[in-house]
Structure formats: structure tokens, C-alpha cells
Amino acid sequence: MFELTLIGIGTGNSDHVTLQGAQAIRDADLILIPRKGENKADLAGLREDIISRVVEEAPEIAYFDIPKRRADDGYLRGVDEWHDAIAERWQTAIATHAGARKIALLIWGDPSLYDSALRIAARLNPRPVTRVIPGITALQALTAAHAIPINDIGAPFVVTTGRRIRDEGWPAAATKVAVMLDGECSFQNLEMADYFIWWGAYVGMNEEVLIRGPLAEVSDEILTTRSKARADHGWIMDIYLLEKLEP
């Protein structure tokens, strides 16, 4: 039996790691680090940098390759099979360090918001004792970068994905919607004249890019900026908040 700790590390800025998170890194016998292909090699490097900043002597590190997700048999089934495959990679990496009893993963953002680490951990056999160290989410980093509150006074907001905006449109009765995991800039499917957007990429990092304004006026700028940033870095993580304008 081993303990698995999921440590939220914010959006890539080592200053986002809490004191609790730093201590959990120091306590770990083994840290698992994913590799997502050559174009995203610096994602592993960012994790390595965070580890080096909080420990004098790094713990054992086991790297594993993220398998590709199938998209030919339905979204939910594809995700479920993908999680099974990732759990197998974790299991293999852990097995090569049989003496490790405190194992950690550094989770981008926070393990509780649009992250699957907890679901993958539940697939391990034997099932570990799992604890979570909260982190700064991309949503928090976005609103901080733009210096805005996410909600209107006494009003709710919706957090959703680009896929749902693309397939279902604007959520009913929502006035503000935060959109995550959107590789297609799904705001293009909306009536853009009706919305205001706060957009950010690499939020909280040195590469941070921010754009805000009426969606119809800044959408082309976002598309161009996003495309160039992805080409420059080989990867991109972005998020945006939309507000429905009064008629």
C-alpha cells in the first residue's frame, strides 16, 4: 500500500505552489512526471523546475508517456479508455520503484477542476490512499490577471468546456460563462456581437498574453495571437470568461 498525493501547482508559475504543496514535494519518495511529446517537452521541464526550487535534493522521478486518446468511438467512451491507459502507465512507473511509499503527481491548476487525476487514481490496483493539495486554478489566475470578479453581485456563473459551447451553445439563463479546454475557440459559434470576453493564455507565466473587449471586435485578434503563440511554444493553455451583454 502506498500514499498518492496530487499537488496542485497552479498554471506553471513556481510561485503558485503553496507552502503545503512544497512540503508534499519534499516528503515524496517518488514523483511521476508525464511526457506529452517533443512539442510539449517544456511542460515536463516546468515541473522539474518547480521541484528544483522547493527541494535541495530531488526525490526519485519516474517519467511516463501520455497515450493518445481515441476519438472514433464517442467522446465519453474515448475518455474512459484513455483514463484506463494512463492508469496502466502510472502502474508501470510505480512498479519500477517498488520501495516508494509516498508518491506524488504535480497537477496543472487544481486536481478538483477539469482534471482527471482523481478518476485515474481510483483505477490503480491496489488502490492507494489519495490526498489532494489544492492549487491555483487557471480560472483564478485569469480573473486575477484581468483584475475582475468572476460573478456579478449575488449572481451565479457557469464553468464549462469549449465542446459544450460548440455543441450546445450558450448555457440557459447564464450571464457569465468561464470556458476551459477549448482547442477550437468555440466562441466563434456564438452570436459574437452579444458578448464581452476576457481571454488569457499561459496565464501567470512569463509568456502570459491577455486580451479583453467586445467579442466581435477582438475575436480575430485572439485567433491570430493564439495561433502564433502555439506555433512559437509548441503548445498552448488558454482560458476565457464571457459575459452576455444587455440587449
Score class of each variant (00 low, 15 high):
Gly8Asp: 06
Thr11Trp: 01
Gly12Arg: 11
Gly12Thr: 08
Gly12Trp: 10
Asn13Cys: 12
Thr18Asn: 07
Leu19Ile: 13
Ala22Asn: 04
Ala22Phe: 03
Ala22Trp: 03
Gln23Met: 09
Leu32Phe: 09
Arg35Tyr: 10
Gly37Gln: 06
Asn39Cys: 11
Asn39Met: 14
Lys40Pro: 01
Ile61Arg: 04
Ala62Glu: 07
Ile66Asn: 11
Arg69Glu: 13
Gly74Pro: 06
Tyr75Lys: 10
Tyr75Ile: 13
Gly78Asn: 14
His83Thr: 04
Ala85Trp: 03
Ile86Trp: 00
Ile86Thr: 07
Gln91Pro: 01
Thr92Leu: 12
Thr96Arg: 15
Ile103Pro: 02
Trp108Glu: 08
Trp108Asp: 07
Ser112Val: 11
Ser116Arg: 00
Ala117Leu: 01
Arg119Gly: 11
Val129Thr: 13
Val129Met: 10
Arg131Lys: 13
Arg131Val: 04
Pro134Thr: 14
Ile136Ser: 07
Thr137Pro: 00
Ala138Pro: 03
Ala141Ser: 11
Ala144His: 00
Ala144Cys: 03
His146Glu: 10
Pro149Phe: 08
Asn151Leu: 08
Asp152Tyr: 09
Pro156Gly: 07
Val158Pro: 00
Thr160Gly: 14
Asp167His: 07
Glu168Tyr: 12
Glu168Cys: 15
Gly169Trp: 01
Ala174Ser: 15
Ala174Cys: 13
Thr175Asp: 02
Lys176Asp: 10
Ala178Arg: 04
Val179Thr: 13
Leu181Thr: 05
Asp182Asn: 04
Gly183Ala: 14
Cys185Ile: 03
Cys185Thr: 08
Gln188Thr: 11
Leu190Val: 06
Trp199Tyr: 15
Ala201Leu: 02
Tyr202Gln: 06
Met205Arg: 12
Glu207Gly: 05
Leu210Glu: 08
Ile211Met: 01
Gly213Phe: 06
Ala216Val: 14
Val218Ile: 14
Thr224Phe: 05
Asp232Pro: 06
Asp232Cys: 00
His233Asp: 03
His233Arg: 11
Gly234Arg: 07
Ile236Met: 08
Tyr240Cys: 05
Glu243Asp: 08
Leu245Tyr: 00
Pro247Cys: 06
Pro247Glu: 11
